[in-house]
């Protein structure tokens, strides 16, 4: 069956697809496995670029342009900017498990997801829905951009207007978050939570992340959930393991 399809597909298209798919996947895998946040960001650019090519391949030229300009141009640059600004450009040890049991859990989830997919694939029928509900995509005067523009300003007019609110939030949010906090932040002002491990002196203890187990009796909590510290380290702290400093774990 695949031979039949392959025969029907034009070589150029197939080649383009194959190459871009490879780029996309390689980039994606790169993001996940690269130890260096900067590398990850660059890998992300690669994926975005591959996706943009696939957009072009599917006659979504405008989106391809936006993808490159907005995503690769703005978003990834923002990422890089933050990485550089924070100086969190050291490596994360991929081998160290973030949390006991997290990776097995992720593995289980992935396996379950795949099993679900397989079941779905075996049991389900695959069909796509009604055609051209919001307007045809091809063969319009003015091409892709005009068609998209019409859709956005007619059918999707209100969603388009509503995105204004999103941008307002983004601006206000950036302002709020960038505001300098007042110079009073002794963490001891925080009332200790149940484990009382916050009451530990706030400074003068180097190498925080290695000691994380000692503050949490049993590594678990009374409510039966795994301990989930959200820890962010300082770039200036001398960490022997070279751990990345901005970390979150669930």
């Amino acid at each position: 069956m695949s031979a039949h399809i392959l025969a029907a597909v034009s070589t150029v298209d197939a080649l383009t697809f194959a190459v871009s798919a490879l780029i996309v996947l390689a980039g994606a895998v790169g993001v996940v496995v690269s130890r260096h946040p900067v590398h990850a960001a660059l890998m992300l650019v690669m994926t975005l670029f591959g996706v943009a090519v696939l957009f072009v391949e599917q006659r979504a030229e405008f989106l391809a342009a936006v993808q490159v300009i907005v995503y690769a141009g703005a978003i990834v640059v923002l990422f890089l900017f933050v990485i550089m600004f924070l100086g969190v450009d050291r490596r994360e040890s991929v081998a160290a498990e973030p949390l006991r049991g997290q990776r097995p859990l992720a593995l289980v989830l992935v396996v379950l997801g795949f099993a679900g997919l397989v079941v779905l694939g075996a049991e389900a029928h695959w069909s796509v829905g009604a055609h051209s509900v919001a307007g045809v995509a091809r063969g319009q005067a003015g091409g892709n951009v005009a068609a998209l523009g019409r859709a956005v300003f007619t059918t999707y007019l209100f969603p388009f207007e509503v995105t204004a609110a999103l941008l307002v939030i983004a601006v206000v949010g950036a302002v709020v978050l960038a505001r300098r906090p007042p110079r009073i932040a002794p963490p001891t002002e925080e009332v200790p939570f149940e484990g009382a491990d916050v009451a530990r002196p706030a400074s003068g203890e180097p190498g925080g992340s290695e000691r994380r187990a000692d503050g949490e009796p049993g590594g678990g909590r009374a409510d039966g959930e795994p301990a989930e510290p959200v820890r962010v380290g300082s770039p200036s702290d001398p960490r022997p393991g070279g751990e990345t400093s901005v970390e979150v774990s669930r």
Binding site: L166, I169, A170, G173, L177, P182
Partner: peptide, 15 residues
């Protein structure tokens, strides 16, 4: 997104 910002609103508490 507004709630993310609101949750982070209290600069003085690390939490």
């Amino acid at each position: 997104i507004a709630l993310y910002v609101l949750a982070a609103f209290d600069h003085r508490r690390p939490a």
